[in-house]
Simulated scan of single mutants.
Amino acid sequence: MPPEQETNQAQQLIALVVRQNTAGIEEPVERILAFLQEAGYRVVFEADTAAYLAMPAIEAMDVNAIGEQADLVIVMGGDGTMLGIARQLAKYDVALIGINLGRLGFITDIPVERMLPALGEILQGKATAEKRSLLEGRVMRDGQMMFCGVAVNDVVVARGSGAGMAELRVTVDGQFMYNQRSDGLIVSTPTGSTAYALSAGGPLLHPSLQGIVLVPIAPHALSNRPIAVPDTSEIVVTIVSGRDISVNFDMQTFASLQHGDEIVISRSPNTITFLHPEGWSYYNTLREKLHWHEYPSYDGKLK
């Protein structure tokens, strides 16, 4: 490695975030650490990762310090791990790389068995950068903001498990859309269109689309169908009736709701950036994760 390149890399800080309670995680973590340190990078653990792994030789940083100082964040886990850290880092301009230790891996998309070659390519500049939009939701009660949250995937308003249907009033940019009786409503980004919204019958949205999709959960009227609206829209969901209704953000933060509460949802001013190996394709990801196995081989035949 040329001395100039080594000096430049030594100035770069890479943070490592690891899913907890993962059997055998120490071995791949040690391999990544050795790979990055040998290449001259300064590597730190996110604070919870450091506490879990108990490797005192590696410096720990909290999320805010990582956002302010890190050049890159590597996330080892499933999509839930990525969602949690991405929401916290959204206000910082730091790119994320996902190593998949989960089941699906739509956004933690690099298989653990390919992590070192993939990281090597990305760190050499052979990468595909992809920006993803987020949603911001505010719970308003009598004109006062009671709660504010950010979502990479979705904002979900839903009834409690033992309660009857909820009635929700939905407006978009001040225009009345409908009163809906259902188990709830999913308001999803394109990233979230492969998550809960998909299981509820919503459409797949390419991540580059500037849209938000509204997907009813088990609506009473079968004519209540998913609809995509521009991501410049302001969506207001008002709680008309129902018991034990709550709103959640990426299934990770929750707020209890009362009748008359309004959830005001709009595109967040922040975005997140994912780095993928060169040649990465969203369609390849869909085909693999959703088992779309028919695709042309090199001889032009389907397999």
Rank of each mutant, 00 (worst) to 15 (best):
R243K: 15
M1K: 12
Q69A: 08
E4G: 00
T238K: 14
D299N: 14
T81I: 01
P56W: 11
A166S: 15
A129F: 01
S182M: 12
N100A: 08
E27C: 03
T253F: 01
V237Y: 05
Y92G: 06
V155Y: 06
V156Q: 10
D93S: 14
A129R: 14
R31M: 13
F45H: 03
G202Y: 03
I212K: 00
N248F: 05
V139A: 11
A166E: 06
Y282G: 10
F176E: 15
P277Y: 12
L204G: 02
Y283S: 09
V43G: 03
D71T: 10
G137P: 00
S281M: 04
M1T: 13
A54P: 04
T273G: 01
G78R: 00
T194W: 07
K289H: 03
S268V: 07
D250S: 06
I263W: 10
V172Y: 05
L83D: 02
G78V: 01
G102Q: 01
S133E: 09
E27T: 12
H293D: 14
Q180G: 12
A197G: 06
Q5N: 02
I25W: 04
A129Q: 12
M165N: 04
M115F: 00
L36P: 03
L83S: 04
H259L: 15
V139I: 13
G242C: 07
S188G: 06
M55L: 15
D62L: 08
E278I: 01
N248G: 02
H206D: 15
A23W: 05
V29S: 04
G162H: 09
F45V: 05
Q5K: 12
I245E: 07
K303F: 14
T22D: 01
E6W: 10
T49M: 13
P296E: 08
V43Y: 03
L134Q: 04
Q252R: 02
G162M: 12
H220M: 01
E26S: 12
A23I: 10
V236L: 05
G143N: 08
L13K: 13
T49W: 11
G174K: 09
P216H: 06
R267A: 02
Q5D: 12
Y295K: 14
A129W: 03
L72R: 09
D71V: 08
A195E: 01
Q5V: 11
S268M: 07
Y52R: 08
